[in-house]
Amino acid sequence: MSKNSVTYLLLGGLLACVCVLAVFVGAVDVPLRDFMDSSIIRLRMARILLAVAAGAGLSVAGVLFQGILRNPLAEPYVLGVSSGAGLGATVAILLGAAAYGSWTLPAMAFVGALLAVVIVYALGSVGRAMPVHTLLLAGIVVGTILNSILMFLVSYPWKDQPTDRLHNVVWWMMGNLEILDSSLLLAVCIIVACATSVAVLLGWVLNVLALGEEPAAHLGIRVERTKKLFFVLGSLVTGAIVAACGLIGFVGLIVPHTMRMIVGPDHRRLLPASALAGAVFLVVADAFARSLLATEIPIGVVTAVVGGPFFLVLLRRRRRPL
């Protein structure tokens, strides 16, 4: 058995274990006998499923953005893509779009994410190059602006909006894995599964892109088309996840980076390994968020507290290409 299959097996086994354990962790303590047939178990299982999908999807999106931008610090949250998705979803909520079906929310979030990618990409490129710091600055600035617009929309005293709905937006902004709409959960799972499959299948193209855009073009890769495809995939996944559980930062940074050290730079292995490890990471982070204090800590706060310092360490280290 190769080293890589061992890695996949270990990660898969680990994921199964943490999922089972996470079912028994929570703010509400229930005796085991009542627990098995209570509705709490179904709620928790839905929540764990969402954590699995979101963790896997955010990690895959991170690998995709890092691959196309050839920048190990690219990540949906840092690039402002999550904020774009958040704004799109907020607009959808304010317009009452949820009434048109559970796909409208992720669709609007996807539009917002894509918009943010296009703006950051245009601002971050200097001529034909895209220096790492300009890209990060562009991402952070665009993210902040989009967040401010979102805050404005939330704070504005809309006549026909009940305040509790807006309060929900604020809570959701901090990252929340509580799932109320099972068809939204299904939508997220389908989008993440499809996008991950396409990404794994085309991972070898990302490998060629690591040579640089011009060398990749010399090898017959249609670079602009390929980049667009991966940008759309990454935005689609980010949009769906943000629509369901808000802004959860740094997962797409910590997980791919760690996996790159274990399985190497080859995207055909890095993508599935990151998807598995991301799922493990978010299930564990959520279990902590639910059990650490008497009240629940927003999951976005947990990932930011872990991921922020990680990001700074990477930023200070001499930059190495993928």
């Binding site: 490998n207 730079p265 080859d266 290409p321 993928l322």
Partner: peptide, 12 residues
């Protein structure tokens, strides 16, 4: 093409 632009610092 053997290009000057190629990223040489690869982990591959």
């Amino acid at each position: 093409v053997v290009s000057q632009e190629v990223q040489m610092d690869l982990a591959f």
